[in-house]
């Protein structure tokens, strides 16, 4: 094997596996619904890498075809999933996955969060300072030469 195809294949497969593993971690451990779906998309990317690597190795276009079709499927999935997430957000006002525990057994207690050790300070929302339209900005006299910011 002098042409390095095998090594290429090896590398791509390992990278694909790492991507898949990372996506899996994110899917299993995050609580924000959007982040969970994001991690699922990462998993799909890893799979696409493996597919194309195998396709090149076997001189078969099937890998790339399947990867293309996977993009289509991922798009459908994202559309429907985000629609559902939106509906769930409308009911509870939050993207937290932990609010939806009603599938549990009757005698199993609800999972209750323990308090976080620190609380982030409430920052006031920082709005950008824009000049009103149609008016020229007030320029201080020492800045007529140059302006540090617009």
């Amino acid at each position: 094997m002098a042409d390095g195809e095998l090594e290429l294949l090896n590398g791509y497969l390992v990278v694909g596996a790492i991507l898949f593993g990372l996506g899996m971690v994110g899917f299993l451990s995050r609580r924000n619904m959007i982040t969970v779906f994001l991690a699922a998309e990462i998993m799909l990317q890893g799979i696409s890498l493996s597919l194309t690597a195998w396709g090149r190795y076997h001189n078969d276009f099937g890998g790339q075809m399947l990867a293309l079709l996977m993009i289509a499927v991922a798009a459908c999935e994202a559309a429907v999933a985000l629609a559902l997430v939106l509906m769930l957000y409308q009911r509870k006002g939050s993207l937290d996955l932990f609010l939806w525990q009603d599938l549990r057994e009757e005698s199993v207690p609800r999972h209750i969060d323990r308090e976080l050790p620190e609380a982030l300070p409430e920052e006031p929302p920082a709005w950008p300072r824009l000049t009103p339209a149609g008016l020229s900005p007030e320029i201080p006299p020492e800045q007529t030469g140059y302006r540090p910011h617009v």
Partner: peptide
């Protein structure tokens, strides 16, 4: 049953974890 019941907690990531 009491032993196995806590696996059905209603938390979906736990279900996914069990599957994986």
């Amino acid at each position: 049953g009491a032993l196995l019941r806590p696996t059905q907690g209603g938390l979906i990531p736990i279900y996914a974890l069990a599957m994986i």
